[in-house]
Amino acid sequence: MQTVLSIAVDALAYGMVLFVISIGLSVTMGLMRVVNLAHGAFAMIGGYIASYAARDLGVGYGVAVLIAVFGTILIAIPIERLLYRRIYGAPELTQVLMTIGITFCIIGIANFVFGPTLKTIPLPPELQGSINLGFRAVATHRLFAILCGLVVAGALWYLIEKTAFGVKLRASVDNAAMAAALGVRTQIVYAVSFAIAIGLAAFGGVVGAELLPVEPYYALRYMVTFLVVVSIGGAGSIPGALLACLLLGGIDTTGRYLMPEFGEFFFYLAVIAIVCVFPRGLAGRAK
């Protein structure tokens, strides 16, 4: 029983980190129909910036998170302008190649600037200890990650369902040409969504650094994981992404607990099985 609960807490924390990072990918994929393999690279950039800010500049954790989120968005803007703009609406293979190219470049540059070693982001004392939940002491950081996931999910839900921007966003996802004809400035909707997506990726990269350690090959190592979330959850669907993250978090964590030797093997096997059974995603409308 204790093991089951431990797995559940870890799976939940892992799933929530996945959610924070991948939800931006899901939204942009639903909106702009871009297969963006470089999404994880932006999470990695966030991790690096936070690590640099916290360790070399000595700023506090909260400030480091803010610097990471806005720094990553700043880096992403010229990339979006110069490169992504050219592949909206292009064939899938072109998008794959361009975004893999971007991923490789970012990995190479990160490797050059920060070196091949693992980077840590020192946690503030409040997040370091553990909290006793009765059945087990749980690392405060895990609870913090879960909380972040819930807050992001709630905020996104509010943004999309309850605000004027959300209406424009949903209209653009549904039918961009029609939305444009109705006076929605889709270019701006795209740009803002892209910025939010990148900011969330960076946020997830920082908050999840304890679970997904920051190193140059981060962008390749977790590429499939983030893409799986979108293809299982269905592009553009928040509940779908949440469900997919919890499912994957559960599978991955259970694998690591029960069969630490073969964890990854079973993870990929499960991915193949799930995608084969639900080729259109759990929500059933992924393209």
Binding site: V35, M223, L227, A235, I272, K287
Partner: peptide, 11 residues
């Protein structure tokens, strides 16, 4: 589409 790509990477 994307799920196909994911399958190929997973393989």
């Amino acid at each position: 589409g994307l799920p196909q790509l994911v399958l190929s990477i997973a393989i």
